[in-house]
Design a protein around this nucleic acid. Structure first.
Length: 402
DNA sequence: CGAGATTCATGTGAAGTATACCTTTAGGCTTAA
DNA sequence: AAGCCTAAAGGTATACTTCACATGAATCTCGTA
């Protein structure tokens, strides 16, 4: 039996999943475990909107995977249901994720996206920002209504946008004749508010709410309820859930991570046509998730990023850099690579920024250090396990045509 | 020997440039009455 | 005369460059014990 047959065979046979979608990240559960208190608070803060009253601006903190988005969406759905039931038409609930990089990382794009969500239309570029702004106001103010705007991962946006934008949004109500708007900011970053204009701060966070991380026990509970629905009976080996929970608890109680882990582990087991999900599958899943993330970043990175990364990998592969690689070395290698691949070479200034961004992406480690008389530089190390390194190198070679 | 002063190799911020899109606007051409 | 198309004018975003100044610790210098 050849390989392909084998693969199909394992899928034709009994699946270990009952309903895999329950473990996927876009699944919205009926109720949200261990977040009753927070969800209740959100609901009570937003409830006046049902009567057409303006509600306080709300700010929600919490690490990734602590149920912030889920909680807000949950309340949103319930409210929209209620609105339908009441037959009124004066409540809009707009959700915008600021992290979708190409979608909303500038003031202009956020406005454009909000307008789209509201049913208006605006080109991706070209209009004066002012014009977009006034169109936005027109759309909102076209009738009497309460508008709740959810800005998810708002910290990502504010880094690039002046806080003025948020401020003017919060102040918008005085310009509106008919409508009322309220903002709901969601941030992963607990220290986000610290370096923000106090005016913005006080107007944005009329109400504050913290979503604490799940602890390992809560994660187990959560995984167990979902696993019961997602897997068939007796599929999970003893301790699998506990291990998933432990992994995720280490990652700041990230429930999304825990669910991904369990799902991928299940997929791996299925692919091997095993009847059980074992502890090793969890380890394997952990590695795979990490790998997939890195690879998709590298594949989709702009050419110049790939060139820089290729230079770093080339130096790293030659070895003997126990203390890390320095910016100067990378730049020399990078120039050579550019010449070989007939790419235009950038300035050292730009390279420096690219290195910083690669660091942000978590592909390399790059800290600024001072080497005394030898000046200041970044100390650079690739942050990839050997197996991934090879794949990354292959991708780079293919993509750059080396 | 130790406190300052020096120095190196980049880091970093601000401002400017080039390119790619986008709308508005005005003029010219077409078309229908 | 109304309608449609086109090109120029005027904006914005993005990726990059140029310029100028900032950094921070190893090393040097020099006064002093």
């Amino acid at each position: 039996m050849d390989k392909v047959d084998k693969i199909f065979e394992s899928f034709v046979g009994e699946s270990i999943f009952k309903n895999k979608s329950i473990l996927q990240s876009n699944y919205y559960p009926e109720n949200i475990l261990h977040r009753e208190e927070q969800v209740g608070l959100v609901a009570s803060i937003l409830a006046p909107a049902l009567r057409g009253e303006r509600v306080s601006n709300l700010f929600i903190y919490g690490n990734t995977g602590t149920g912030k988005t889920l909680g807000v969406q949950f309340v949103r759905n319930k409210m929209l249901e209620k609105v339908k039931e009441l037959g009124t038409d004066n409540l809009k609930f707009v959700y915008l994720n600021c992290k979708m990089k190409s979608l909303a990382d500038t003031e202009y794009r956020i406005l454009a996206e909000l307008i789209n969500e509201m049913g208006g239309k605006v080109p991706a570029t070209g209009l004066p920002t002012k014009e977009v702004y006034s169109r936005f106001v027109d759309i909102i103010d076209s009738k009497k209504q309460v508008i709740l705007i959810v800005l998810d991962e708002i910290d990502q946006a504010v880094q690039k946008i002046s806080g003025d934008f948020i401020y003017s949004l919060t102040r918008l109500n005085s310009e509106l004749k008919n409508a009322q708007i309220s903002l709901i900011g969601i941030s992963n970053n607990l220290t986000f508010m610290d370096n923000i204009d106090p005016r913005v701060k006080s107007s944005l966070a009329e109400e504050e709410l913290v979503f604490p991380p799940y602890n390992a026990l809560q994660l187990q509970d959560l995984l167990k309820t979902r696993a019961d629905k997602a897997f068939k009976e007796n599929i999970l080996e003893e301790g699998v859930i506990a291990k998933c929970a432990a992994f995720a608890a280490r990652e700041h109680g990230d429930a999304r991570r825990a669910l991904d882990l369990l799902r991928v582990a299940g997929e791996l087991a299925e692919r091997e046509s095993k009847k059980k999900v074992t502890l090793e599958h969890i380890d394997e899943a952990n590695r795979k998730i990490e790998k997939d993330k890195v690879i998709s970043i590298v594949e989709n990175a702009p050419r110049q990023f790939q060139l820089v990364l290729a230079s770093i990998m080339a130096i790293d592969r030659r070895g003997k850099n126990p203390n890390g690689i320095f910016t100067g070395e990378v730049y020399d290698k990078y120039k050579a690579v550019c010449e070989k691949t007939k790419n235009e070479e950038l300035t050292l200034r730009r390279l420096s920024d690219i290195l910083a961004e690669l660091d942000m992406l978590g592909i390399i480690y790059a800290r600024v250090i001072s080497k005394g008389r030898q000046g200041r530089t970044r100390e650079i190390k690739p942050m990839l396990s050997p197996a991934i390194k090879e794949q990354v190198c292959e991708i780079l070679q293919k993509s750059l045509g080396i």
